[in-house]
Simulated scan of single mutants.
Amino acid sequence: MALTSELTSADLADLRQSALGAADPLGVAADLAHAVEAGRLADPQDAGLALTLAAEIAESRTKLDAALRYVDAALDAYGKRDDSPAAAARALRARILFRAGRADEANAELEPLRPGLTQYPDAAAYLTAALVVGGRGRDAEQWLTEAVQQVLAERGAAEPASADDAGLLFFVLQQRHRLRHALGMPHDTHDNLAERLETKLANAQVATEPAGDLLFWPQAEFTALTGQWPALTEAYGATWDEHRARLERELVRLAGTGRGDLAVLPGTVSGLTAHAGSGDDPATAENRAGYAQRLQAGTAKISWPPERNAACWCGSGLKYKKCCLPRSRR
């Protein structure tokens, strides 16, 4: 995306997903900062978000002086705000300070943010990230454990029936569970609860989400599919390149909503035909959706996203960064 016009909140959300795959990420960061300075944000209240994103990009490229400059500008833009975006920027500042060898300053930045674990759903992620960078993984686990205990005590009720019912507790449990696994710690009752809620969430998604949106036709199958049912180019794209681009954009969109464990569902014409059964038209939307649901419940799925330098998920043989990663920005 060329940052030459007014930036909307949607533009910033797209950049958060695509900036690190850009040819010049640091140029994107500088352009974001310039857009703020030049008043080229559709909503001036987005200045803090734009500058925080610039800081994240610079940090990812170990340009710590630039990252600190951007995040300080973000905090100036937030002013006296004490909501989650402002707290996330402060946690990012602590992370950058840790990387710069300024641990005392970083720790002083983090301690006041600790109550956010029981206030903001995303606080568990950004505080854990900062503490781990600072070599304080065990402290992060303790913070998360105490937050789980506090929320459970405040609920004073039976086990949550679902991730939605758990609310903020779900995010703290999941972050704690992942961290304890990374630290090699044994499962406890909170880990077991995290796994039960995650299973319930996954089952609910399989039951309600349009799996057909992630149905992937490898090149030979795409050619056979559209040759037999030309009208399906409306659903899957006129060319295999367009088909892959649609899938990549949908995966990026779903990732932006917080979905994890994303995967594409490789289909075959013979599999679709067998699913439909004799006497029925395999190309109907109902049959295609049912086929996708069956694939989603199985194990023959392709996890997304691959590493930038790994083979692309589409099977082209090219690296992801040279193949489907850029397609999300077309």
Score class of each variant (00 low, 15 high):
Asp31Ile: 00
Ala66Glu: 07
Cys314Leu: 08
Gly271Trp: 04
Ala274Thr: 14
Lys63Asp: 15
Val132Cys: 11
Ala35Leu: 01
Glu146Val: 12
Thr299Pro: 11
Arg329Gln: 14
Ala285Lys: 11
Gly184Thr: 11
Ala311Arg: 11
Glu6Ser: 13
Arg178Tyr: 10
Leu179Met: 10
Gly116Lys: 05
Pro186Leu: 12
Thr226Ile: 15
Asn107Gly: 14
Ala47Val: 10
Gly116Trp: 03
Gly279Phe: 06
Pro305Gln: 08
Ala50Pro: 01
Ala66Pro: 01
Asp164Trp: 03
Ala289Pro: 07
Leu3Val: 02
Ala10Gly: 09
Ala54Leu: 01
Gly212Tyr: 01
Ala106Ile: 12
Cys324Ser: 07
Ala33Arg: 00
Val71Tyr: 04
Ile96Val: 15
Ala91Met: 02
Pro230Cys: 07
Ala153Lys: 10
Leu173Tyr: 06
Thr273Asn: 05
Leu32Met: 14
Ala10Met: 05
Ala129Phe: 05
Pro306Met: 03
Gly271Met: 04
Pro218Leu: 09
Lys80Gly: 15
Tyr320Leu: 06
Asn107Phe: 12
Leu265Phe: 14
Gly101Leu: 08
Ala163Val: 06
Pro115Cys: 07
Gln219His: 09
Gly267Gln: 03
Pro115Lys: 04
Ala124Gln: 05
Pro121Thr: 06
Leu295Arg: 01
His187Phe: 12
Val264Ile: 15
Trp217Lys: 02
Gln175Asn: 10
Ile302Thr: 13
Gly79Gln: 03
Pro306Gly: 05
Asp241Leu: 13
Ala54Phe: 00
Leu193Ala: 12
Ala311Tyr: 08
Thr268Ser: 15
Glu286Tyr: 12
Glu250Leu: 14
Asn287Cys: 08
Trp143Ala: 03
Val132Arg: 10
His190Gly: 07
Cys314His: 03
Leu265Pro: 02
Gln219Leu: 11
Tyr291Ala: 04
Ala66Thr: 04
Trp304Asn: 08
Arg259Trp: 10
Leu265Val: 08
Pro230Lys: 09
Ser162Ala: 09
Glu141Phe: 02
Leu295Glu: 00
Ala54His: 01
Cys312Tyr: 06
Ala231Ser: 12
Leu53Ala: 00
Ala310Pro: 03
Thr118Ser: 09
Glu146Leu: 15
Gly39Ser: 05
Leu215Val: 12
Leu15Gly: 00
Tyr126Val: 01
Ser18Ile: 04
Leu201Thr: 09
Gln150Val: 15
Leu254Glu: 10
Asp83Phe: 03
Lys80Arg: 08
Leu20Asp: 13
Ser328Arg: 15
Glu109Arg: 08
Leu318Cys: 09
Ala74Ser: 09
Pro121Cys: 06
Val28Tyr: 00
Gly317Val: 12
Arg259Ser: 14
Gly135Arg: 06
Leu247Tyr: 05
Leu168Gly: 14
Val133Asp: 02
Leu144Gln: 02
Gly237Asn: 09
Gly315Trp: 02
Arg136His: 14
Ala166Asn: 04
Lys63Phe: 13
Ala220Gly: 15
Leu12Trp: 05
Asn107Glu: 13
Ala124Ile: 06
Phe171His: 13
Ala276Cys: 08
Arg329Asn: 13
Asp82Glu: 11
Ala54Pro: 01
Gly101Lys: 07
